[in-house]
Design a protein around this nucleic acid. Structure first.
Lengths: 223, 223
DNA sequence: GCTTAAGTTGAACGATCGTACAAAATAAGG
DNA sequence: CCTTATTTTGTACGATCGTTCAACTTAAGC
């Protein structure tokens, strides 16, 4: 049940992985991502993943290294890429001058939405996968490892805009905002149902929502 | 895989259920609630639920009627109670005079938070359970049945405050707000980690966040 | 208090789960 | 090209899964 973070024996590779094995590894991660996102950790079986990837069950273990480690790898893969894009956007913003809350939030939110909408089915599924990780207490270690560093960076950036506001209040605003972003990605169907066929708000409106919400938190601390 | 909503044969009860069986039924639902909330649908086994409830596995089926129906009953039980409390609060607010956005949101959000904080472990677990339902596409029917009627009622109430704003935009605000409430209930540990031991925002601040967010959405529609 | 519907027990069913492993196929490094 | 590390196949194991059912116990209704 406990997730294994450390490998006891680190065996050195003696050869570079073949191009085919890298492709296979990517196909397995893609299949795992889609199925974990749709059905959760135990809802997706190794056999389902193997079938979707077009490989044998044993191969999933060979590349994934057990189901929990496969889950971890699936979450971490895109988290690293997304974190880089977000930080690049933040750095570009800061070079352009003094950042605003709206601008910082834009750097955090927009890359995610854009990738989900135009980056292919993988990034779309990743939103649901992250939602699963965020919900389940068992994956706290994964969430802390994959998401906390970037979240801390952006909270620090926002804190610089409001030096006198308690960090925990800004962290709360960040957590609320992340959840709103995940809802934006995963609950378009719900908005459609609740408004009789209406369309979900756009990315700009979502960022407006989060920025105004955080400003309200700041106001509550500085009455 | 498809959730069965209709019973083909409706057998009439010839006797009232015994007091003991009602207690057993409640214990099974409590156990199912806690385990579904912690581990998700397939992560919680019928045997785990039976063991936690202190009954035999067959009895879980007798009272639950299959795993999916048990899951549905677990979600629906508190949803009905919560919906009633929320609507009562809304009616009391309207009798006191012309409602405000902040007031309407308070009726929607505060009962949930209060129950989770003071209503016992059941209501605390329920927040995680609802989060699971919201994440997984397989439970859309349950979400629509248990949550949509109340959500529609509150969206209509907010729409009355902003007659010229698109309903889908307000529905988006509602969905964002619900996700923030769930994050508030389930992610206190995350705020703690991100702010080095700081404390999650209070209920008033959460409602401020949502109200300011929705007002920002309204502004974006009425430039 | 008797009758019997309803509740409960305990065991068993077939299916599927994650994992392990030997053998075969592939391709990197010299 | 040869060697052999690595990748891939195919199968099998033990455990656990959801579900079923006959037998037994409890208690509601008359």
């Amino acid at each position: 049940m406990i997730f294994m973070t450390a490998k006891v024996t680190e065996i050195k590779r003696q050869r570079a992985p073949s191009k085919r094995s890298l492709q296979t590894r990517a196909r397995i991660l893609d299949a795992a991502e889609a199925l974990f996102a749709d059905r959760g950790f135990e809802g997706a079986s190794i056999r389902d993943i193997a079938a979707k990837a077009g490989v044998q069950v044993g191969l999933v273990h060979h590349h994934g290294g057990g189901k929990e480690e496969l889950f971890h790898k699936t979450v971490a893969r895109r988290a690293d890429e997304l974190a880089q894009i977000r930080l690049d956007a933040l750095n570009a913003l800061k070079e352009a001058g003094q950042p605003t809350l709206r601008g910082v939030l834009d750097c955090f939110i927009r890359p995610y939405i854009t990738l989900a909408e135009t980056g292919g089915v993988g990034w779309m599924a990743y939103g649901r996968l992250v939602a699963h990780v965020s919900v389940d207490p068992r994956w706290r270690a994964i969430a802390a490892e994959c998401f906390d560093p970037t979240a801390r960076r952006f909270i620090a950036e926002i804190a610089a805009l409001y030096p006198k506001v308690d960090a925990a209040l800004l962290a709360s605003g960040q957590v609320y905002s992340v959840s709103a972003v995940l809802a934006h990605l995963n609950s378009a169907w719900r908005v459609d149902a609740l408004s009789e066929g209406g369309q979900l708000a756009g990315t700009d409106e979502l960022i407006d929502f989060c920025a105004a919400g955080i400003e309200a938190l700041v106001r509550s601390a500085n009455p």
